[in-house]
Nucleic acid binder design. Structure first.
Length: 424
RNA sequence: GGAGGUGUCGCAUAGUGGCCUAGUGCGCCCGCCUGCUAAGCGGGUUGAGGGUAAUCCCCUCUCGCGGGUUCAAAUCCCGCCACCUCCGCCA
């Protein structure tokens, strides 16, 4: 949710932000009208309620016939109060509903346009030249098969398309990545967390995943639980309806959790292997801070992610995601895309968003400062998404004999192994 | 899943239909007093929203949440949620 004051005072700015996302600016005017109606209904209700209260005091202090007369007049007043209350409730609901539809104001610095209008900020590392190395790279599916790292056929048998088992060295590789990411996050000041992956509607709504992204979300209708697509959800909701003391900011968390995504609308895309799946595990970084600090924090999260990919010795590029591809809650987003040799493309491995005050407003996350209580800002960033990282590691570090080199930093987490070798 | 109990201001408690604009104690903040500290004295201390451009002022809402009864609800009724105790089940 964005700041109402900003919306009232600078509607043109909000309309522009909508256009930059490729959305209609009409919603802004709809919201402003709903806000007018809401405030009028509040004034009407409060006036009647004050009248009712003072009459009530008189009733309590009066006896006999006078009291009976007062009761009669106050009775009709009660009906008017009730009617005004209903009107107000409806006006608030209409207003809130329209507010919920409005995405965060895209940062003026975010490139305008849709998915393809991103701006490449930099390249780190060079895509490997397999010709020079004298062999054709195998894709991760073939490599995984030879290493016994995962089992896609049985994943499909048991759970369906886009499911898999990590097996043997694949399972160990995930645990190694989790352990390494968590340790690194902790030493960078993030508190390790293992949050619930099933959440109530409030958490999902508050983080902005029930808007345009709702089609991608698994819902347990019997119990009204949602399966989270990222631990950003339980981490953001962690401090919902809380007021955090200024001295305790920023608060940084790193969570390991499974992620569930329907991947609706991606039929036929990335169907091979474990690149795009309905479930994967991820370590996610999350920060609560002030709006003023959020911009610097966003850069810090990006820096953390870049260093992570460098430690894994993966070539990648950093993109500044276009306004139309930000999702509901982000004002700005940077993705790190690793080079995938057999696809000949850079593909998203990490993503970091500054949600400014958008999620915090919806979830009632505030801070107490000298100047009073106000909304905080929330940011999130991928520390390590397991399946995609495994894909990138296998493909980039493969050797002619089908073995895979383990980056030095990861070796201590894999019993010191320097290479992963094909099973017999 | 079943039975019972509890839910009031940061904490502890009072309040069982209207003088509740929720009292008191502790803690905390400001001031006074005071060699220093403590004590003592005085004042303040939930959050949201509206009137307003406003940190002043006024008003409304807020006693776990949502409904209902009533002229009037912290208080009575219903539903839900959380926590505690016990039973069942389970990793």
């Amino acid at each position: 949710m964005i700041d109402l004051r900003t919306l009232r005072d600078h509607p043109e700015q909000a309309r522009d932000a909508q256009r930059r996302r490729g959305l209609s600016p009409d919603l802004i005017d709809e919201i402003l009208a709903a806000d007018e109606a809401r405030r009028a209904s509040i004034v009407a209700f409060e006036r009647l309620r004050a009248e009712q209260k003072s009459l009530g005091v008189q009733v309590a202090q009066t006896q006999g016939e006078d009291r009976a007369a007062l009761l009669a007049s106050t009775k009709t007043l009660a009906q008017r109060v009730k009617a005004a209350d209903t009107v107000q409730g409806e006006a608030e609901a209409t207003f809130y509903e329209s507010m919920l539809q409005l995405p965060n104001l895209a940062s003026p610095e975010a490139p305008a346009g849709s998915e393809d209008d991103f701006v490449v900020l930099e390249h780190v590392g060079e895509p490997r030249n397999f010709k020079a190395d004298g062999f054709e790279p195998l894709d991760h599916v073939e490599l995984g098969k030879r290493l016994g790292a995962f089992d896609i056929e049985r994943g499909a048998k048991v759970s369906g398309a886009r499911f898999y088992y990590l097996t043997g060295v694949g399972a160990m590789l995930e645990l190694a990545l989790v352990q390494m990411a968590m340790e690194r996050a902790q030493s960078s000041g993030f508190t390790p967390m293992i949050p619930p992956a099933l959440v109530k509607p409030r958490a999902m709504e508050g983080t902005g995943f029930l808007g345009q992204a709702a089609a991608d979300v698994y819902h347990l209708a019997d119990d009204d639980f949602y399966l989270v697509g990222t631990s950003e959800v339980p981490l953001a909701a962690y401090h919902s309806d809380e007021i955090l003391e200024m001295a305790t900011l920023p608060r940084r968390y790193a969570a390991f959790s499974p992620c569930y995504r329907k991947e609706a609308g991606s039929y036929g895309k990335d169907t091979r292997g474990i690149f795009r799946v309905h479930w994967f595990d991820k370590v996610e970084l999350f920060t609560y801070t002030t709006l003023e600090e959020s911009y610097a924090e966003h850069r810090r999260l990006l820096q953390w992610e870049k260093e992570w990919l460098e430690l894994l010795e993966l070539p990648f590029r950093v993109i500044d995601v276009a306004a139309g591809d930000l999702g509901l809650s982000a004002a700005r987003k940077f993705d790190c895309e690793a080079w995938i040799p057999t696809q000949g493309k850079y593909r998203e491995l990490t993503s970091t968003s500054n949600c400014t005050e958008f999620q915090a407003r919806r979830l009632g996350i505030r801070g107490r400062f000298e100047t009073g209580v106000r909304s905080l800002a929330t940011l999130n960033g991928t520390a390590c998404a397991m399946t995609r990282t495994i894909v990138a590691l296998l493909e980039n570090h493969q050797q002619p004999d089908g073995s895979v080199r383990v980056p030095a930093v990861l070796q201590p987490y894999l019993q010191g192994r320097e290479t992963l070798v094909p099973i017999a």
